[in-house]
Each structure stands twice: as structure tokens, then as C-alpha cells.
């Protein structure tokens, strides 16, 4: 299946802003994170098609995954 991965803020550093990925059927968000070197604990928000999900979320063909690190300074 085919998904779109969007990274935000510091997750873009040394990676990318948006890329397409081909994944085996029944992949979870976790399978997207592993090759990117991002662990679930580093993620503040994970949206799949705009819905807040966790790393165990089961992906479907055509999904858009958006990953945000925590931004907490003042």
C-alpha cells in the first residue's frame, strides 16, 4: 500500500518535509517510524488523515501520516 508521510518542526532536520512510502499491507504507524529513526516517545502528536492516533494505529492505502515533536518552550 501507498502512504504519504509529513514531518514537522525538528523532525524535518536531516530527513524530509513530505515523502511517499510503499508499505506492506496491515502496516502500523510504528513501521513508518522505524526507518526514520524516530521512537514513539519523541512524538507529541501523530495524525493520520487529521485524526489523533498512536503508533499502533493500523494504516490503510492512501493514508497521510503527520508527525509532530513536542514544542514546549516559552
Amino acid at each position: 500500500m501507498h502512504v504519504t508521510v509529513k514531518l514537522f518542526a525538528s523532525f524535518r532536520e536531516g530527513r524530509f518535509k513530505v515523502e511517499e512510502r510503499d508499505l506492506p499491507e496491515e502496516s502500523r504507524v510504528l513501521e513508518v517510524l522505524e526507518p526514520l529513526g524516530i521512537i514513539p516517545e519523541e512524538i507529541a502528536i501523530c495524525l493520520v488523515n487529521g485524526q489523533n492516533v498512536n503508533e499502533q494505529h493500523l494504516l490503510k492505502d492512501g493514508d497521510t501520516i503527520a508527525l509532530f515533536p513536542p514544542v514546549g518552550g516559552g
Binding site: 518542526a9 525538528s10 507529541a44 502528536i45 489523533n52 515533536p69 513536542p70 514544542v71 514546549g72 518552550g73
Partner: peptide, 15 residues
């Protein structure tokens, strides 16, 4: 709570 509910520190420590 939805945005920040999970974390303790943000990436500002590095950046």
C-alpha cells in the same frame, strides 16, 4: 491536553 498531554519536555532543550 490533546496537544501536550503526553510529554514532559519538548525539543527546545536541544534547539
Amino acid at each position: 491536553k490533546s496537544l501536550f498531554g503526553g510529554g514532559k519536555r519538548g525539543v527546545e532543550n536541544t534547539w
